[in-house]
């Protein structure tokens, strides 16, 4: 039984990537140098976030009005802001909310999206209809404005932002996983499992789910990128967590405190570069993975 299952599983690989070991799954990183660079950068950001108190030379919120708008120097490698706060230390601490929002939102999006897709695709009929109308509903809601309303109405905190992002972003994963499941459930290995008397639950999670995991990972890595970008936008607009130091808030403060007119380039370039580097690394990982799943895209 398990023999046939794995063989059939490999046949399904043409659609969805199939069942492969973790080692095979990350093997694409050996050939794909861009994806590898993405993994390195993202790991770096996570390490910085974890060890922020050790790395940062100053308290990111400590003001020093005698040292405001200082350009980069040995004491302040990335200069200071209008209140004399150290930009480098703020950047280091800013990795924390980015990692928190990026990883937790992506995990929740992947979990919800995959399960909705599995259930809708497998059962079909009314359940499918209802869940897909829910997806349409989520697609009809303007994304950033929704996050603003939710965070603006409730307590502005990182967890509210994670919740707001998750509430909408699962829609894409659900749609993609569902259409993969529609294909998979017609495959012989699913039919034989059913004939052998396997329960729906077992078929969904033992036989079908492993085949849609690669797709879920793919959309999960994109979700990391969208979540970090969204959190930065929300913070920039002034709806961020007031207790956290975030890259978006740094840019908001820079724009409001005349950093542009004063040519304080170190203040308004660095946080943007940090956001960009983190987001693009998630995109590069996703892209490398996508090419592995869909070799037509590969050169």
């Amino acid at each position: 039984m398990s023999e046939t299952e794995s063989i059939e599983g490999t046949t399904a690989a043409t659609d969805t990537g199939g069942r492969t070991s973790l080692r095979e799954r990350v093997a694409f990183l050996k050939e794909d140098r861009l994806g590898f660079a993405g993994v390195i950068v993202l790991t770096f950001v996570v390490v910085v976030a974890v060890f922020a108190p050790v790395i940062a030379p100053y308290d990111p919120a400590a003001t020093d009005y005698y040292a405001s708008f200082e350009p980069p120097s040995a004491a302040h490698p990335f200069g200071t802001d209008n209140a004399g706060r150290d930009i480098f230390s703020q950047l280091v601490y800013g990795a924390r909310p980015a990692v928190q929002v990026g990883l937790f939102s992506a995990a929740a999006v992947a979990l919800i999206g995959m399960n909705v897709g599995l259930v809708a695709g497998y059962y079909g009929g009314l359940i499918d209809d209802a869940l897909m109308r829910l997806v349409d509903f989520a697609y009809g809601i303007p994304f950033t404005p929704f996050v603003i309303v939710l965070v603006g109405l409730w307590e502005p905190s990182l967890w509210t932002i994670v919740l707001a992002i998750t509430l909408l972003l699962w829609r894409q994963t659900a749609r993609v996983v569902r259409s993969a499941v529609l294909n998979l459930k017609e495959k012989p290995f699913v039919k034989s499992a059913r004939t052998a008397g396997a329960s729906d639950r077992r078929i969904i999670y033992r036989h079908i789910a492993p085949n849609v995991l690669p797709l879920t990972f793919l959309y999960g890595s994109f979700a990391i990128a969208w979540a970090i970008l969204t959190e930065a936008s929300i913070s920039f607009l002034g709806f961020g967590d007031p207790d956290a130091t975030t890259w978006g808030q740094m840019l908001q403060a820079a724009l409001q405190s005349q950093a542009l007119a004063r040519d304080a380039w170190w203040w308004f370039t660095m946080p943007g570069l940090a956001i960009m580097a983190t987001v693009i690394s998630a995109f590069l990982i996703g892209r490398g993975y996508e090419e592995q799943l869909n070799p037509q895209l590969k050169e």
């Binding site: 970008l229 920039f236 943007g272």
Partner: peptide, 9 residues
């Protein structure tokens, strides 16, 4: 990957 508000700034 570059946030619009940053490229705008």
């Amino acid at each position: 990957s570059a946030p619009v508000f940053w490229t705008g700034i």
